[in-house]
Every structure is written in structure tokens, then in C-alpha cells.
Design a protein around this nucleic acid. Structure first.
Length: 602
DNA sequence: GGGTCCCGCCATTTC
DNA sequence: GAAATGGCGGGACCC
């Protein structure tokens, strides 16, 4: 745009808007210029003050220009000032009002039929771009409002790129392999698990980078973490990375504190240390995350919750944000239904995560490490008691073969015949299936007939089944049912650690029972921008049972109880059986990046 | 005193 | 060179 004075551009812009606004802007411009000139004639201002005066005038003019024909009915300047939307969530609401029924609509800032401070609009646009609602159009000052479906698709991509699924599938595969590969040590297993986790994280960084379709060159994202420093400086990219953190840091409960997120984002860029610069960087990122969360709250993508760490005198409470997807709390939830709050991700992907192994394994490596220890103990016990050996012998050395996947005899290292391998494989698969059923079994698909209203579900004592049970939340389980399931009765689990309590509090099934205030609290979010809406306890998953049990409490209106899974707990690097855990300790992101990848003992 | 978030300076990018 | 864009830190406000 060719301009010959600071105000000529604004004049051109004002000509493009309504006659009313054009008149208004013209008057304001004349008034401001007149005021400025009169001041200059009386007071000798410094150049800086002059510039500032001019900038203020320009800002006011532009903000006036952004006023719509419909909303510009106010006759005086005070009303206009008051009507200027300044907060990000309000601006998002205006965006949604303006574009809620639109799809793939191109627009410029001048097309926005609401009043807002321009600088804030840029913030919102950038976040909306990161979410996928908006795409920057080819030419300057032009944007494309896509659609909710596009946004959901992008979020799904972000989540997939977080590699949670593949990461956990790797872990499951590792566990499954360990079940049949008796000679694999626990050290190897944990080392493998952690490596896969870190590899997944690293690759997710790259994928997330590629996902960002901002104006920055995507190739600059793909080389190293150190280069990601510049990535985090772009609000759109920061938005993408922030979303991915929900699935990376907290793959089960999708809940983050801003401290964790900021620290992790800085750590990802290789800047996390104890220097003042690093702390300043974290503080700066946090400011941006506040902006992003405000937009997310207005979009209904997250909800604000309170999380507690530890217990007793060590109890710490913090605000956090829980990813809920694009669907707000359903009316069914508000009326007391047992249904979960459905996320858009579920809608889009049709993932039946609730009872799937995949879902069950979306948990922390440390938890899985503990589980692996359980599995080994259980298998040792089973082998000892059930004599699960195979009556197949190596044709070369005649030693007895065990259920192992390699096609080599473990004794003489000779190649086994195809028929022997097939038999071994079949037997291994059978054993694996049995053990998976035993160890990973989801909740029974058929509800158990119950005399006290809603269907009850049988449960197992398996830690992962416990995960599933909590994840599938809202299942009403009486303590009697919980402790008397067939599996639980038949299998006396010798767990190394109470990974998850499978016992509900005594009065859980009795809505009239008094429940202590300190219990798990969850209330529905009624406002788009709630204050502290939920209280979640993120005590260690391997904390004593009573700690877990204290987490549960019906919501204030008795309508909805959210069970969120415990946050990741970092275990000692030693691959010993986990005996206890206080549930305290630094937040995951405070730990060095390699904390999850203890050096493999040599 | 810390969490939150609005304000606006000013560097960078775009035209 | 002007305008658009947006990174960034200050600081007000609130609890």
C-alpha cells in the first residue's frame, strides 16, 4: 500500500468501511491532529513523546475502524473505549460468533465485525492458527477461517505426532516379548522401554515441527532440538507444541500445569538450566501459555482444574489445565449421567480407547516398568507352579526348547526346523494370548447384572486393568464387587507395588454417605472461563492405597465424577522392584531430559 | 507474594 | 519507508 503520510493509510482503510465509521474516524483524526498541534504549540515535547502521541492516535483510530456497523451505535468515545474487547477469551468468543457457521471463509482484519484491540487480535489469530481454525492466506492481512473439522483434524495430527500410541504399542510389544523371552533380563527390558519412550519423544518433536504450517520455514524445525528455540518463539508453533505436551507429558490424564509445560518447552529447546536467563525464559513462556490457555478455555478445548501433589503436610495444590477436546461438557453429564465427557478426538477417530490395551498402556514408562516387574514375578510364579514348559526338543542338541521367539536353539544356536518353529510360535502365541488375557485383560465387556441400579462391572486385580477401570471412569463399583471379581478371587496377585488400588472407598456406591472434604473433588465447568473448577489428586500411582482412595468424591451436584489417572512418577534409575514411593518429588518436567532413560548397567 | 493477564514497546516482516 | 505483525517484558490486579 502506497502511503504518503502516517494517516493516509488509515484514511484509505476508513474509506473501505461503513460511512458511519468513516465519518467517525475522520472526526477523530482531525481532533487528534488538532489536539496534537495545539499541544505542540504550547509544550515543547520530546521526540519520543511526539512519537508516542502519534502512536496513541493511530491506535485509537485503528481500533475505531475495527468497530462494526452493528456495534458502533455508541455515540461517545467512552462507550467505544468500553466496548473495545481487550481480553483474549472475549475476542475468541467474537471470532466464534462471527465464524461459527462459516467454513473456508477468507477474511481480513477489516472484515471482523467486532471491536477489539488489534494487538490482541494478532495473539488470538496466532493461537487459532496453531489450533487449526485459521490459516494464513497468501497475501498479507488476509486469513482463512477453515472449520471445526479442520481444527479437529489438526489436533488429531498433533496428538498422533506426539507418538503416544506408537510409543505405548512399543512398550506393550516389549512387555509381550518379555513374557515369552525368558532370557531377557529386566534391565534390558527397562532400558528398551525407556529408549523407546525417548525415541518416541524425539520423533514427536520433529513431527510436531512439521505440523506447524506457520510462515516459518518448516525445514528449520527438522534438525535438532536446539533449533526449536526459535520455534517456541512463534505463538502458533508454541500452541502446537503446547497441545502436544498434553499427550506427551501426561498421556493418560491429559492434564498439565503451566509450570510443567513452560519448563518442558524450554527444556526441549535445550535451554533448561538453573541460570537466571533460563528462569526468565520460563517466565516468558508462561506468559504466552496464559494467553494460549485463555484462548483454549474460550474454545472449550481445555478446562481449568486444581491438582494436588503429595499428601499431608507435603500437600501442594496447583492450577492445571485438563485437555477435554473441542466438545464442552455434555448435557448428559450435567444431568448426572455416567457417561464420560466425550472428546472430539474420540468422535473423529472412533477410538474405542476405554477398554483397549492401547488405552490401558497410555501411561508412564515408570508405571510400565513397575508393571513389567509384576509380570516377571507373576510369570516366574506361574512357571514354577504350573510347569509351563514345552515338550519340544532341539533336533540338534536334543535339549528341551522353551517358548522363545528366535528361530535359534538357545542351547546350541543351531537353526530350528520350520515345523519346530511353527509349533513354538503357535505355542508362544497361545501362551502370550493367555498371559495377555491374564495381565492386560480389559474390563469384561458384558456388564454384570446388578440389583442396585446401574450395571456393575467385574474387575481384575491387574494394574493395567485398574488403569482401564479408572480411565473408563464413571463405572459405579461397589467395594464388594471390586474385591470379589472372579479374576481377583482366582488370582492372588503378588504385586510388587500397589500400582493402582482396585478398591473403591467404602461408601463410594452410597451417594448419601458423607465423604471427607479432602477427598477427590470434581465439579462441572459451567462457565467458559472457570475459576478453579476441579480438584484432582495426582498422588503417586504407587502410593499407599489409602492415598488413592481419598481421591474420590462425588461432585457438588452429584452429577459427575471425573477420575483422572495419576501423573507420571519417576522411579529410581535402578531397575529394582519398586517397594514404595512417597508420591512427592519434583514435577516431571523438572527432571533432566534423560531422567527417564537411566544408563543401562554394564 | 504468587498467579494471572492486559498493556504496549519495539524489532521484524511485508508490501 | 510505511504499515502490519508479533515477540516480549512490565506491571496492575486479584486472591
Amino acid at each position: 500500500m502506497k502511503t504518503d503520510s502516517p494517516h493516509s493509510g488509515l484514511r484509505l482503510l476508513s474509506e473501505a468501511i461503513s460511512p458511519h465509521m468513516r465519518e467517525l474516524a475522520k472526526k477523530e483524526e482531525e481532533q487528534l491532529i488538532a489536539e496534537s498541534l495545539s499541544r505542540e504549540s504550547v509544550i515543547k515535547e520530546t521526540p519520543k513523546e511526539q512519537v508516542e502521541q502519534r502512536n496513541v492516535g493511530k491506535r485509537k483510530l485503528f481500533e475505531a475502524e475495527l468497530m462494526s456497523e452493528g456495534s458502533s451505535q455508541g455515540s461517545n468515545q467512552d462507550e467505544k473505549e468500553a466496548s473495545l474487547t481487550r481480553s483474549l477469551d472475549k475476542i475468541v468468543e467474537r471470532f466464534l460468533e462471527r465464524f461459527s457457521d462459516k467454513e473456508n471463509e477468507q477474511f481480513t482484519l477489516m472484515d471482523l465485525e467486532f471491536t477489539a484491540v488489534k494487538r490482541r487480535i494478532y495473539d488470538v489469530i496466532n493461537v487459532l492458527e496453531g489450533v487449526g481454525y485459521i490459516q494464513k492466506w497468501q497475501k498479507k492481512n488476509s486469513y482463512l477461517w477453515t472449520s471445526k473439522a479442520t481444527m479437529e483434524e489438526k489436533i488429531l495430527k498433533i496428538r498422533r505426532s506426539a507418538n503416544v500410541d506408537s510409543q505405548n504399542q512399543d512398550l506393550v510389544a516389549t512387555i509381550a516379548h518379555s513374557i515369552v523371552a525368558k532370557d531377557e533380563t529386566f534391565d534390558d527390558l527397562t532400558s528398551h522401554s525407556d529408549n523407546s519412550h525417548l525415541e518416541a519423544s524425539d520423533s514427536s518433536l520433529l513431527n510436531i515441527s512439521e505440523l506447524s504450517n506457520s510462515s516459518l520455514d518448516s525445514s528449520s524445525f527438522s534438525s535438532s532440538c536446539s533449533k526449536s528455540s526459535s520455534m517456541t518463539k512463534n505463538l502458533s508453533n508454541l500452541t502446537v507444541r503446547f497441545i502436544s505436551l498434553f499427550f506427551r507429558i501426561s498421556p493418560v490424564n491429559w492434564t498439565l500445569t503451566l509450570d510443567e509445560a513452560a519448563e518442558r518447552l524450554v527444556a526441549d529447546s535445550g535451554e533448561l538450566d538453573l541460570t537466571a536467563a533460563s528462569k526468565s525464559r520460563i517466565a516468558s513462556i508462561k506468559r504466552r501459555l496464559y494467553d494460549i490457555t485463555n484462548v483454549f478455555l474460550a474454545l472449550g478445548l481445555i478446562e481449568k482444574v486444581q491438582v494436588t501433589y503429595g499428601a499431608g503436610v507435603h500437600l501442594q495444590r496447583k492450577s492445571a489445565y485438563h485437555w477435554i477436546g473441542a466438545t464442552s461438557v455434555s448435557s448428559a453429564d450435567k444431568t448426572g449421567s455416567n457417561s464420560t465427557s466425550k472428546t472430539v478426538l474420540e468422535d473423529v477417530t472412533h477410538l474405542q480407547q476405554k477398554n483397549s490395551i492401547d488405552r490401558q498402556c497410555q501411561t508412564s514408562p515408570s508405571l510400565l516398568r513397575s508393571l513389567i516387574a509384576d509380570i516377571h514375578a507373576e510369570l516366574d510364579e506361574a512357571r514354577a507352579h504350573d510347569s509351563i514348559s514345552l515338550s519340544l526338543n532341539c533336533p540338534t542338541c536334543l535339549n528341551q526348547l522353551h517358548r522363545q521367539m528366535p528361530a535359534l536353539c538357545p542351547h546350541c544356536r543351531s537353526h530350528l526346523p520350520a515345523a519346530t518353529n511353527a509349533a513354538l510360535s503357535e505355542s508362544s502365541n497361545s501362551l502370550l494370548s493367555t498371559k495377555q488375557k491374564l495381565l492386560f485383560s480389559p474390563l469384561p465387556s458384558s456388564p454384570i447384572a446388578s440389583s442396585d441400579g446401574p450395571c456393575r462391572r467385574q474387575l481384575t486385580s491387574t494394574p493395567l486393568a485398574g488403569v482401564s477401570k479408572i480411565a473408563s471412569n464413571f463405572c459405579k463399583l461397589s467395594s464388594a464387587t471390586l474385591s470379589s471379581g472372579t479374576f481377583a478371587a482366582n488370582r492372588k496377585r503378588k504385586s510388587s507395588a500397589p500400582v493402582f488400588s482396585t478398591r473403591m472407598p467404602p461408601n463410594f456406591n452410597n451417594p448419601n454417605a458423607a465423604i471427607p472434604r479432602s477427598s477427590f473433588m470434581s465439579t462441572l465447568v459451567t462457565n467458559k472461563k472457570p475459576l478453579a473448577s476441579k480438584t484432582l489428586n495426582f498422588a503417586s500411582p504407587i502410593a499407599p492405597n489409602h492415598e488413592i482412595n481419598r481421591q474420590r468424591k462425588p461432585s457438588r451436584n452429584g452429577a459427575n465424577v471425573h477420575f483422572l489417572l495419576p501423573m507420571e512418577v519417576h522411579l529410581p534409575s535402578s531397575p529394582k522392584r519398586i517397594k514404595d514411593d512417597s508420591g512427592l518429588g519434583p514435577s516431571p518436567s523438572l527432571l533432566p531430559p534423560n531422567a527417564l532413560n537411566p544408563a543401562k548397567p554394564t
